[in-house]
Design a protein around this nucleic acid. Structure first.
Lengths: 203, 203, 203, 203
DNA sequence: TATTAATCGAGACGGTACGTCCTGTCTTTGC
DNA sequence: GCAAAGACAGGACGTACCGTCTCGATTAATA
C-alpha cells in the first residue's frame, strides 16, 4: 500500500507560495514553458513538496485558479435579471467578449484549456469546481426567462447554453474570427430565435 | 535576414518518411510523448532535416494530417444535397459524432487542437489548409438551402456554421456531455429554428 | 556569482564509475574519439553529473589518471640514490625511455599532452597534481648530489631538470628521433658535463 | 581503385582562398574551434573542394603555414655568425623567446603542435618541410663553431640542438615556467658548458 | 517537556529530449 | 567536369527538466 502524505502536516505557507508562483509564471512565460522546477524556485520550495501534493503540472495550475475563485467565498456569480432577457444576455455576452480580449486572462485560460483537453481527470475537476457553478448561475437566469415566457418551457438548458456560448468560445480558442460586441449581440439574437417559445394556439 | 532553405533541393523521400513516421508515432505513443528525435529515428533522417523544414513539432504533425487529406487529390468534401436540408444536416452531424467517437481519430485530433490553441501561426495554417476547405463545402450546402428558401437569405453563414458545429466540438473537446446521434439531431433542429427564413408578407 | 555544486553531496560511486569509464574508453577508442556521452553511458550516469563536476573532457581524463596514481597512496616516487649519480640517472632515464615506448601509455599520455597544450587551466592542474610531485622527487635526488659535491651547488634545479628531460620528451612528442637506451645515456652524460661543479681552487 | 582528383584541374584561386581563410581563422578562434565548414564559408568555397584536396583539418592548417614560408622562396634562415658563438646563440635564443611571446604566433603554433603530436604523417611532413630546413641552418652555425674550436668536434649536433632548444620549447608548450631573456641566456650558458671541447693534452 | 516522525528546503542523481553544430557524402546547377 | 552551394544522415554537444532520491533542519503532535 502506498503511503499517503498526511494532509494535517501540510504547510499552508508553502502551498500558498506554490500557487502564487504558478499563477505568476503562467502569466509571464505561458503554460507550455512553465516548469515544476521554476515554480519550486520561485516559491522557495523544494521540488518534492510539489510532487508530494500534486500529481501534475496541470493540477497545480488548476488549483492556482481555484484558489483565486475561492478567495472571495460568497462571490456573486448571478447574472443580471432586469426582466429584459435580450438586454441581459447581450450585457453578459459583451462582458465575456471583453474578458477574452484581456491579455491578462488570455494566457492562463488557454493554458487551462490545453491541459483539460488531454486530461479527463483534470477536465472533470474543472467542470465541477469552476465551470459547473458558473453554468448553474447561467441556467438560473434562463429558468427565470422560461417562467416569464420568454424562452421555450421545454428547452434543454444544457443545449441552450452550448448554443449561446460555444460559438464564442470556439472562435476565441481557435482564433477563427474576430470577437466584437456586435458578434456578441448577433449570437444572442440567433439564440433567442432558436429558443423562443412556440407560438400559442394553432394546434 | 535569415537564410531560408531552398525548397527546390528538398528531398521528397525524406519528407514522406518524416510525415509517415510522425503519423505512426502519434498513434502509438500519443502527441504529448511524441518527440522530434523519435520521428527522426523512425524516419531514418537527421534531426536537422526536420528542423530545417518545420518550425515545431505541431507543424510536422499538422503536415502529416494534411498529407493524408491530399493523398486522394480529387476527394469529394461536398455535403449531400438531397433537397431535404434537415435530413442532410442530420446525416452529416451524425457522421461527425461517429467520427469523434472513433478512438483512432480521438488522439491525433486532440493533439492538434492542443497545439493550435497555443500557437497562432499553427492555427492559421490549420484554418487555411484543413478547416477552410471543409467549411467552404459546408457553406456551399447552406447556400444551396438559401436558394431553395429553406434558410434565411441574409444569414451570416460563418455564424451559422458556428452555431451548428461549435456546441458539438466543445462538448467533445471538454468532454462536457455525451455525444449521441440524438444530440446531433437536436443541434440540427435548433439550428434550423434559428436560421429559418422570416415568414413572407405580413410586413 | 556562479553557483557551485556542493562537494559534500557528491556521489563517490558515480565519481569512480566515471573515472573508470573514462580510462577504459581512452584505451579503447583513443582520446580524440572519446565523448562525454560515451563516458556517461558506460558509467551508467547522467551527462549532467559529468558536467557538474568537471569543466571539460580533458579534466575528466586527467582526473582518471590521477585516480590511478592515488590508488597506491604511499607509492614511492623517490629516485634511486646509490651515491653514484651517473648510474642512478641512467637507470631512471632508461626506464623513462622504456615507459614511453609502451604502447599502453603512448595513447593516453599523448592525449593528455594534446589537451594540456591548449588549455592553460588543465595545464596548471596537470603540473600541480602530476608533474609537480614527480619533479620534486627528481630534484630531491639532485640536491643529494649537490650535497655530495657531484653537482654544482648553485645550479638552478628547474633548469637542470629541463636540460635533462626536455630533449627526451620532445623527441618522443614530435617523434623527431629514435628513443634508445643509448640516447638516454648520452643525455645523462651531457647533463653531467653541463652541471658538474666548477673545479675547486685555481681562482 | 579510388579516383584521385587531377591536380592539373585544381583551382589555384580556391587553394589560396582556403589557406588564407585557415590562417585567419586559426588566429581568430584557435585551432580547437576551427572547422572545415568555417574555412569553406570564409573562403567562399564548397566544402567538397576542401575534402577533395586535403585529408584532414591539420593538413590544411599545416599547408597554410607552409604557404607562408614558401612565400619568400629564397628567404635567409641562416643564423648570425659573428665569430662569437655565445653572443650569437644568445641573440637567437632571445629572439625565439620573443617570438613565442607574440600572441599572434602563440595560437597557430600551438595548433600545429596539437595536431602533430597525434598524427605521425603530419609530423613527418612538418619535420621535412618546416623544422628540417630550420634545423639545418642551426646546425650549420654549430659546425662553424666546431671548426673554430668553440664546440667539441665530436658533438652529436642533433643532440646538441635538442639540449639547446627542447627546454625552451617544453617550457613554452606546457607553460611550466616563465620565458625571459635571462632564461634564454642561461640555456646558452648551460649548452656551452656541456658542449665545449675537451681541454687539450692531458691524455 | 522531551521524543519522534513527517514535512520541509535544498539539490544531486539517472535519464530523456532539446535545438545547434559539425562531419563527410551526395546531388544539383552553373561555368 | 570541376566548382559553389547546400541538403542530407549521423552523431556529439551542452542545457533544461523530469521525477526520484538523499540529506540535515524544522516543526508539530504524541508520550
Amino acid at each position: 500500500m502506498v503511503k499517503q502524505p498526511d494532509p494535517a502536516r501540510r504547510s499552508e505557507r508553502s502551498r500558498q507560495a506554490i500557487l502564487t508562483a504558478a499563477r505568476e509564471l503562467v502569466s509571464e512565460v505561458g503554460y507550455a514553458k512553465l516548469t515544476i522546477e521554476a515554480i519550486a524556485a520561485r516559491a522557495g520550495v523544494g521540488k518534492q513538496t510539489i510532487y508530494r501534493w500534486w500529481p501534475s503540472k496541470g493540477a497545480v495550475v488548476l488549483d492556482s485558479f481555484l484558489a483565486l475563485s475561492e478567495a472571495g467565498p460568497e462571490q456573486d456569480m448571478a447574472l443580471p435579471d432586469t426582466g429584459d432577457l435580450e438586454a441581459d444576455l447581450k450585457t453578459v455576452m459583451r462582458a465575456t467578449v471583453a474578458e477574452f480580449a484581456d491579455p491578462a486572462f488570455e494566457g492562463p485560460i488557454r493554458a487551462l484549456n490545453t491541459e483539460i483537453i488531454n486530461d479527463p481527470a483534470l477536465a472533470a475537476q474543472y467542470r465541477e469546481k469552476l465551470a459547473g457553478p458558473v453554468d448553474e448561475a447561467k441556467k438560473a437566469r434562463l429558468r427565470s426567462a422560461q417562467r416569464a415566457g420568454q424562452l421555450a418551457a421545454d428547452a434543454d438548458l444544457d443545449l441552450a447554453l452550448e448554443v449561446l456560448y460555444a460559438p464564442l468560445y470556439q472562435r476565441w480558442l481557435l482564433r477563427s474570427g474576430p470577437l466584437t460586441p456586435e458578434y456578441a449581440d448577433a449570437l444572442v439574437e440567433v439564440f433567442l430565435k432558436a429558443m423562443r417559445p412556440a407560438p400559442p394556439g394553432r394546434p
